[in-house]
Simulated assay, not measured.
Amino acid sequence: MPRMARIVLPNYPHHIVQRGHNKQVVFAVPEDFRRYISDLKELKHVFGVKVYAFCLMTNHVHLLLAPGDDTSGLGKLMKGLAGRMTRYRNKLEGRSGTLWESRYKSSVVETDTYLLACSRYIELNPVRAQMVDRAQDYPWSSYPLRQNENAEHVWIDKSPVFEGLGLTHSDRLARYSEFMGQATPASELQLIRQALQRGQLTGSPRFTNEIENITGIRVSQRPRGRPEK
């Protein structure tokens, strides 16, 4: 059965996960993490892609990215990130071959309702994995970077939803920190995970209908298995 074509829309956020090949370790030492973040910071400008959130785990990455009017920038960014990291690790280890799974997972996110939810999901990954007690204690995500009181020194992009949290940067940080501290509903976790796993949309039924009308592609959630007779 052919897999569903990836949906990429201009100026919409996309939740992306890319995993190491056969779940192998991608980031072994701090320099590995720093190199990937440096490349992300550089290439987002090259390809005109906004970075709303990120988290680098040992064997996979979570990204919340929004391409501009040219949607090809998203794929070029992911190819550039993967290629640079592969060449770096292969040279370091004196090996050849792939470092990543061949196809990253992607889900278009409903901006108004789920963008902050996806940011929280991404930045709480180390906490759910019991690597740290607090999101701000994990150095390889956007959360500690976001906490900088000087907005000019924060290179991650601020979404309209984040900007709407308050009149000042400090107010926005306080509101977002409060949001991060709230318990995440189980239904929200399930929707985000299933949408990403199935390559579908992270959003409401109304949002799904709107995107289906725009793209002409059916992306509605369907039950797994064969239909009942």
Results as ranks from 00 to 15, higher is better:
153 H>F: 13
142 S>E: 08
136 Q>C: 06
106 S>T: 03
161 V>P: 08
27 F>T: 11
118 C>M: 04
44 K>R: 15
144 P>Q: 10
111 T>L: 15
108 V>P: 01
127 V>H: 03
216 G>H: 09
84 R>M: 02
90 N>Y: 11
150 N>V: 13
23 K>C: 10
186 A>L: 04
221 Q>E: 08
76 K>N: 13
67 P>Q: 09
86 T>F: 06
11 N>W: 05
109 V>T: 08
132 V>N: 06
115 L>H: 02
94 G>I: 07
116 L>F: 13
5 A>F: 00
58 T>V: 14
76 K>D: 14
203 G>V: 01
95 R>T: 15
117 A>I: 08
138 Y>W: 15
120 R>F: 02
128 R>Q: 05
135 A>V: 11
136 Q>Y: 06
63 L>A: 05
85 M>C: 10
97 G>W: 07
61 V>L: 12
43 L>T: 00
36 Y>R: 03
79 K>I: 05
179 F>T: 02
54 F>R: 08
78 M>D: 03
220 S>I: 00
121 Y>P: 09
46 V>W: 01
158 K>N: 09
66 A>D: 03
88 Y>V: 01
170 S>C: 01
147 Q>S: 12
65 L>K: 07
229 K>D: 13
210 E>H: 02
189 L>E: 10
26 V>R: 05
192 I>C: 00
96 S>T: 15
161 V>E: 15
134 R>F: 13
87 R>I: 03
181 G>H: 11
115 L>N: 03
147 Q>A: 13
28 A>Y: 12
159 S>I: 05
191 L>Y: 00
44 K>D: 08
118 C>F: 06
113 T>I: 07
205 P>Q: 02
227 P>V: 05
